[in-house]
């Protein structure tokens, strides 16, 4: 088995259909959506609330699969001198958590009437887990991607509460707890592995910022009222993000409505 596994080779059964990340970002319809024209915050008030929630849940589902695959690859790709044993233990633990999230997402999808593979899958979450530097990979996955997961799960949890869906809010709350743990792991390892290498730490944080900007593309995630995914400040603080850092993500998200501003996340 190779070290380093490209996103295009991620194994899927026949139900899944892959969309190229570039195609999504370069969709010619994007230019007709003026900045700020978004689907709107995910609340039951939206007339397309059920469809939007199902679509987001399917996105969570494939995101969990990719997070599982990303954590698994970190366990395999790096030799012991590149990634300490304790870091691999944390990633193995994350594998279990993401496997559980995958299971929960499948069940939630069924609950919401969604079929596996109903929506196209882009691999840009996994692409953040392909960086050859374990510190950058950890930062991209455990701080940017898992940070996004905090925002998404909190949005879904609040949506479940708002429409009194007991199953959705229950499950999302559990998943949210795990994601806070994963972000803490990422923050901890970033600090430990770059203790004597501020330049590497800076590169890792810059990588995280690039990935975060991608996740905020066109205001998909942000603090604007009509951002579908809301930045979850309280849970992010709990996970170890500083206020300045959250402010930066919010500011980048606001500026991120510029479709020219994105670039591929693989370093």
């Amino acid at each position: 088995m190779r070290k380093s596994f490209p996103a295009e080779d991620l194994a899927r059964d026949g139900r899944f259909r892959r969309a190229r990340t570039e195609d999504r970002f370069e969709d010619p319809r994007n230019e007709f959506l003026p900045p700020g024209r978004r689907a709107g915050k995910l609340t039951p008030d939206r007339s397309d609330a059920a469809h939007a929630a199902r679509q987001l849940m399917h996105g969570i589902f494939v995101g969990e699969i990719q997070a599982l695959e990303g954590a698994g690859r970190t366990v395999w790709d790096f030799d012991d001198d590149e990634a300490p044993f304790a870091l691999k233990l944390d990633m193995a633990r994350q594998c279990w958590d993401e496997a559980r999230h995958t299971e929960m997402s499948v069940k939630l999808g069924e609950w919401m009437g969604t079929e596996v593979g109903e929506f196209a899958e882009t691999a840009f979450l996994y692409q953040a887990a392909c960086n050859p530097d374990p510190v950058l990979r950890l930062t991209g996955v455990n701080r940017a991607l898992e940070g996004l997961a905090i925002d998404v799960f909190n949005t879904m949890r609040e949506f479940g509460e708002a429409c009194s869906d007991p199953v959705l809010s229950f499950c999302e709350d559990w998943m949210l707890a795990d994601e806070v743990t994963h972000v803490k792991m990422g923050s901890d390892w970033l600090r430990r592995l770059t203790e004597n290498d501020p330049e590497r730490r800076e590169r890792a944080l810059e990588f995280q910022r690039v990935v975060d900007k991608l996740f905020s593309f066109r205001g998909f995630r942000g603090e604007a009222d009509d951002s579908p995914i809301q930045l979850a400040r309280t849970f992010r603080r709990m996970a170890g993000f500083g206020d300045t850092e959250i402010d930066t993500i919010a500011a980048d998200a606001e500026a991120g409505s510029d479709p020219e501003g994105w670039r591929a996340p693989v370093g």
């Binding site: 609330a49 199902r54 069924e110 009437g113 969604t114 429409c163």
Partner: peptide, 10 residues
């Protein structure tokens, strides 16, 4: 049917 049931439940 189940997709619509979910929309209805909301």
């Amino acid at each position: 049917r189940e997709r619509r049931r979910y929309a209805f439940r909301i």
